[in-house]
Design a protein around this nucleic acid. Structure first.
Length: 145
DNA sequence: GCCAACGTTGGC
DNA sequence: GCCAACGTTGGC
């Protein structure tokens, strides 16, 4: 299983809206960046990702799961762009602030820090564990610690 | 709201 | 195929 991170401005698409979609999930549409698209094409159903609020909040607020592999983006006719579907799995009991991520030496190579403009990013297994630990969630059971 | 970082576009 | 101009993202 691979791990990812999805950024969204809460004014455009918030964690609350994502959760409201339930198990059905929602298309992660609107990505117009080749790097981000290529990462989405790499994703498999069942992979997990962090849901990060950019612009406002600046924190990892929850965990999502890829519910459908990459397919044409319904918001454009341009066939260059496709995207996955994601569904909400769990809240971060304690949202992890960007500031905390930056302050943690274990996470200094995390894409969130090094490629902060990228809206869909890969997350390494040890980074996944560390951010889960900081957020007070067990990465296996998805239960609060 | 500003501005730095950086991806994309388009003229040559 | 280079690179300047431009547009967008996102932290501050």
């Amino acid at each position: 299983m691979k791990y990812w991170l999805f950024k969204s401005e809460p004014d455009a698409w918030s964690w609350e809206q994502q959760k409201a979609k339930g198990d059905e999930g929602e298309e992660w549409s609107g990505i117009r960046n080749y790097q981000a698209r290529n990462f989405m094409r790499d994703m498999k159903v069942g992979d997990r990702g962090f849901f990060y609020h950019s612009n406002k909040g600046l924190e990892v607020v929850g965990i999502v799961e890829i519910s459908a592999e990459s397919a044409p983006d319904s918001t454009t006719d341009d066939e260059r762009w496709d995207c996955v579907h994601v569904r909400a799995l769990a809240d971060m009991p304690k949202p992890v602030k960007l500031k905390e991520v930056k302050a943690n030496p274990t996470l200094e190579e995390m894409s969130l820090v090094t490629s902060f403009r990228l809206s869909v990013q890969p997350v390494k297994a040890d980074e996944w564990k560390e951010v889960c630990r900081m957020g007070g969630i067990n990465p296996k059971t998805l239960k609060p610690v």
